[in-house]
Design a binder for these strands. Sequence first.
DNA 1: ACGGTAGTTCGACAAACATCGAACTATGGA
DNA 2: TCCATAGTTCGATGTTTGTCGAACTACCGT
Lengths: 118, 118
Amino acid sequence: MAETFIICTMRTYTHPAAEDFTLGRLFHALSDPVRLEIVRQLSTVDEATCGDLDGGRPKSSVSHHFRILREAGLVRTRVAGTVHQNSLRRDELDARFPGLMEAIIKQIANEPALSEPA
Amino acid sequence: MAETFIICTMRTYTHPAAEDFTLGRLFHALSDPVRLEIVRQLSTVDEATCGDLDGGRPKSSVSHHFRILREAGLVRTRVAGTVHQNSLRRDELDARFPGLMEAIIKQIANEPALSEPA
DNA sequence: ACGGTAGTTCGACAAACATCGAACTATGGA
DNA sequence: TCCATAGTTCGATGTTTGTCGAACTACCGT
């Protein structure tokens, strides 16, 4: 029987630096209704867990969307005990794309139905 | 031989009304590097033909991208003789999403390399 | 009427993507 | 130590998407 080497991983996340944000990744991340809804919720709150924003969807789907949001630089995820707290990277986004997120969030806030459930 | 009925079409385009623009379609349209480059070029110019902005790509590809830009409400296409003139729908976009396009265009203008060729 | 130029449409193909179940990891509490 | 909870990773599946050639439409000039 082969030995199994368990590499301890995912106690922390890697987030891109603000200089590495790209408009392409940003717009792609925002092009999905589920993610747009997540960003909307996050914009009204300081932090939220994945579970808070899952809208009844399976965990694996939600986890996938959060990964894309992280890779685009939109979201920072912080491990806090058994829970993962997510927040918008407002300051870094504003440093990289001045004024853009503010304009986007303002629009998102006014949109009635971005994604079916909550 | 069966008769062929030729329905005269495509002398004009249908463009969505500003009320029907959605953030999802907008962000999706902007998530492709080729289209982002097209929008960038259009933002520096009053009008341009598809050929002006094809970046050496095949016509069918470019036509596809313009269609998506049109359906998102980003671009208006006007048939002018043998040529199709495209322009950004700045006013309507600003009416629907106040301040958003201005912020986006400002960022696009500063991006060095959105898409490989011109 | 003919030819050339500008774009569109269609069909095919491969790559990227969203969705979800199942197995797994990590943490805190009983 | 065991269990429950919160999320991640993996693999499979179906859908959407980008790319491009080929055939077509529309218009202008000759």
